[in-house]
């Protein structure tokens, strides 16, 4: 970068971003924290009710189950997306022409809106008219079997977001200096060794970035589940954000829904801090010393 310590942009540059954040993120968050200590049905004014919502949350099996479901969902989504995105990304970083053509195809889901993707998969997986019923998988109730539905949602999420993360890995893999591979080849390292000892360590921070995006993104997944299953069958896919939505906007328990929202915010922030801590983000240093 050309900026040096002497020519740092003034703090004023941050003002628009800061204003946006304050108005659309910080202020609503403060209001939600306030609402979490009230009882409010949307009629009239919120009535403070102390810690009632919080003690109710501790004993609310449905809410706690939705939290566990969210944790499982997030872990599954991360575990499914990361290896696929990493491998395709590294592969797509190659300069060969066929790779360029194929990767632009891989990125197609990126162009579709979440609602369109959810509708598309809902139609494909329909038990009566879906195309999946025609093939060898016919008879499997992807959205109707409580034991399968959550995995189906993970699959759709993976299909949707792998291209984005692939893009991250592709970009990062292209910045790895070719000289590293050249010298490794001279030292007799094969493809697998090169990947393991050069590519992976070099992509470390991309993995962290992509993981944080995945974890926080999955934690707040909402429309896909709402459209695809509505949280069903029963509550098999009712993850916490959807449970919050149903509590707030179907049950009109805005106060209690805010309590769930606060918990989600705490979870999300905590998780990204944890990921950074584990990966020692603070001591981040160049991976290319000596180059």
């Amino acid at each position: 970068m050309s900026h040096t310590a002497h020519h740092r942009p003034s703090a004023l540059y941050a003002l628009p971003a800061f204003g946006f954040f304050a108005l659309f993120a910080a202020l609503p968050m403060v209001l939600v924290v306030y609402l979490s200590f009230t009882s409010w049905g949307g009629l009239g004014l919120p009535e403070p009710n102390g810690l009632q919502n919080w003690s109710r949350l501790l004993n609310d099996e449905a809410a706690l189950a939705s939290m566990w479901r969210t944790a499982l969902f997030t872990a599954l989504a991360w575990a499914a997306q990361t290896p696929i995105a990493l491998l395709i990304g590294v592969w797509a970083a190659g300069r060969q022409r066929n790779r360029a053509v194929l990767s632009s195809l891989f990125f197609l889901p990126l162009l579709l809106s979440t609602a369109a993707i959810a509708l598309l998969w809902q139609a494909l997986l329909d038990p009566n008219f879906g195309i999946t019923q025609a093939g060898p998988l016919g008879g499997i109730l992807f959205l109707g079997d409580p034991a399968i539905a959550l995995y189906t949602v993970v699959f759709v999420i993976t299909w949707q977001y792998v291209p984005f993360h692939t893009l991250l890995y592709q970009g990062a893999a292209r910045t790895i200096p070719a000289s590293l591979y050249d010298s490794a080849t001279l030292d007799g390292a094969g493809r697998f060794k090169q990947f393991w000892h050069i590519t992976l360590p070099q992509l470390r921070y991309t993995i962290i970035t992509s993981s944080i995006l995945m974890v926080v993104g999955t934690l707040t997944t909402f429309e896909t589940v709402l459209i695809l299953t509505g949280g069903g069958p029963g509550t098999a896919t009712r993850i916490a954000p959807l449970h919050m939505y149903i509590t707030g906007f179907s049950g009109f328990e805005m106060g209690y829904a805010s309590t769930i929202a606060v918990l989600l915010v705490v979870f999300g922030t905590g998780l990204s801090l944890l990921v950074m801590r584990i990966s020692r983000f603070r001591s981040m240093s160049s991976q290319q010393e000596g180059l």
Binding site: A25, P28, M29, V32, M244, Y245, A261, V265
Partner: peptide, 14 residues
């Protein structure tokens, strides 16, 4: 509901 989306912030929007 999609039109009214916005997760946590929607609470405040209302």
């Amino acid at each position: 509901p999609l039109a009214a989306m916005g997760l946590a912030t929607a609470m405040a929007l209302v």
